[in-house]
């Protein structure tokens, strides 16, 4: 079996190398697309992994929190701030920053409220129970979105500048892609700082590793769990804004599709592991972009999901703990 896997990886690398040789500039442009998509996935994947790390719960409603974040962002940008393609850069930046905060706070509070209403009463119940309520919450949020925006797509004007940041020898990097990274990177850096360096982050890590022991250390476990949902929701809100800006439209079920990909990314990287979620998200972003973009013998977009999940299966067979996950006695 390991030889089969090694062979597959070798084939993949050869395929990438030939594509790179046939058009280095084109290949790089496609990689930029993968990086940008991966950044959006990372924001959502981190929410799955944070919540799983602390509760061992797959929060199926998380993708829908992201979707509502996108709808809130679209509404803020186009209806509240009234940003158009003709708006000045200064006003655009102001509107985006304000919307970022509103979407993050809104989704954070929403996510913490979901935990309080739907998961906390089931804390002592068998694990299947909160899983089912999570699916239920997902449907409720989608129906709220339909009730608010209707079943159609909510679009927002193409407000991000499409100009080139740089363009050399056929390699171009556009402003809209840079802006996605410029929003994502500080949010990720703040998260790492929060978890690694602050007292609250310490409480989160302790609660994730042993809830009873954390309580015995004087940590308010319920408050720490609420805080974790708040942070996860905030990341989903940021993801919603970035998605709305970059892809320009979304609707009630956008969170289902992207949530599934982001959840896969979290498992790929090692669920519960923060750098793993980012790595998994970037991997899937690249896989998707290369598969759909490269010209030489690429399977094409019809195959993207099959490929993503085939890779997931292979990873789980050979490294059940994910790319960066740790082998723990509990079997995680």
């Amino acid at each position: 079996m390991p030889t089969v896997a090694a062979l597959l990886v070798a084939l993949l690398l050869v395929w990438l190398a030939i594509n790179l040789a046939k058009g280095p500039a084109y290949f790089t442009n496609i990689a930029f697309i993968g990086l940008t998509n991966g950044a959006v996935y990372a924001l959502v994947a981190l929410g799955y992994t944070l919540v799983y790390g602390i509760l061992e719960l797959i929060n199926f409603a998380h993708g829908d929190v992201f979707m509502l974040g996108g709808l809130i962002s679209a509404t803020m940008i186009s209806a509240v701030f009234g940003v158009t393609t003709k708006s000045s850069t200064g006003f655009l930046v102001l509107a985006i920053v304000c919307t970022l905060f509103i979407a993050m706070i809104g989704c954070g509070v929403l996510n913490a409220a979901i935990e309080f209403v739907a998961y906390r009463p089931l804390r002592g119940a068998p694990r299947l129970a909160p899983l089912i309520t999570a699916i239920g919450m997902s449907f409720i949020l989608e129906n709220i979105a339909i009730g608010w925006k209707g079943p159609g797509y909510t679009a927002l004007p193409n407000v991000l500048p499409k100009g080139d940041v740089f363009s050399a020898g056929g390699v171009t990097y556009t402003w809209e892609k840079l802006i996605v990274v410029l929003i994502t990177a500080p949010v990720l850096a703040a998260l790492v700082y929060l978890v690694q360096r602050t007292r609250q982050g310490k409480a989160m890590r302790a609660t994730a590793q042993d809830r009873d022991a954390a309580a015995m250390m004087g940590i308010n476990v319920n408050r720490t769990i609420s805080f974790t949902f708040l942070i996860a929701g905030g990341l989903a809100g940021a993801g919603g804004l970035v998605y709305a800006l970059y892809f320009g439209q979304l609707r009630y079920d956008s969170g289902y599709q992207l949530g599934l990909i982001a959840f896969t990314a979290a498992v790929l990287g090692g669920i519960g592991n923060l750098p793993g979620a980012v790595l998994g998200a970037l991997c899937i972003g690249f896989i998707q972009a290369f598969n759909e973009g490269l010209r030489w013998h690429s399977p094409g977009s019809d195959w993207t999901e099959s490929i993503v999940f085939s890779i997931l299966i292979l990873i789980l067979v050979f490294r059940p703990e994910g790319l960066l996950g740790e082998r723990t006695p509990e079997g995680g």
Binding site: D210, D212, A213, M216, T328
Partner: peptide, 24 residues
Amino acid sequence: TAAHDVVRMGIAQSPEGRKLFPRM
């Protein structure tokens, strides 16, 4: 009284099964 407040009042424990934070 909640567990996290009991510690603050001055009761600490080395629990059954040790319950250390394994990844710290």
